[in-house]
Amino acid sequence: MSARAENLVKAFGGLVVAWIVGLGISEGLAAYGVAHWPLLGSVQAHITADATIYLIWQAVAIYVLVGGTIVYCAIRFRARPGESGPPAYQRRYFGPFVIFWLVMSIAINLANTIYPGMVGLEQLWGIQLKTKHPLVVDVTAQQWKWTFSYPKQGITDVSKLVVPVGRTIDFVLRTKDVMHDFWVPAWGVKKDVIPNEIRHLYVTPTVLGSTKTNPMIRVQCSLICGNGHPMMRAPVEVLTKAAFKTWVSNNSF
């Protein structure tokens, strides 16, 4: 083995050590972040957060492997004082590296499309298909407020969203003026509300609470809709099934 090749093999050994150290530190930090994840208040929130968290593990690993190599090369292969002229290593191509890179990037892409992409979508769609009798809530967006109606319960035009825990809700989204977006951060999904169209969003709340106990449980417009956009919120309360029944009987007519 020539001296030059030996040096590059040694350099690669150093890179592997750098990778291991970098992966340990970065994935550790990511684990800390994931452990402090905000409230996941619905079945759907768990599906979308699973996707996000899986992609975080993956992104951190790729960042360390690729970015770490950039940093390592900049240090290891810098021009040291007294060195001048081109280095001896002048190869334009190294087949195994290129093929490995190509195979890996295609494989990761395919894998990501299947999980968390299609798997997550199938789960979300599955809930929608399986739900025979959802609680229907009509949501009307307008500049800059939300109103909610419960057609089957005979409750119309309330400004607070009250829902039972553990039951799938079919939010029927309409707007009176411009585009809006219906989003409860704790429920982990959002849907645009488009003029002249009707959209559905299925959510199954799993955590009791209200906007007062956790600000993640709030309706928030999430598509720019004019001056009042940031204030276009509505309070939310997730009740037990019994408490929801009481609320319905107190508010219907």
Partner: peptide, 24 residues
């Protein structure tokens, strides 16, 4: 280095389930 972060975080927005929460 910055683009690497920008590109990798783009995958989250490409992934529809993750995007439902992270969009906007």
């Amino acid at each position: 280095m910055n683009f690497l972060i920008g590109g990798l975080t783009g995958i989250f927005n490409a992934d529809v389930p993750a995007d439902f929460q992270l969009h906007n």
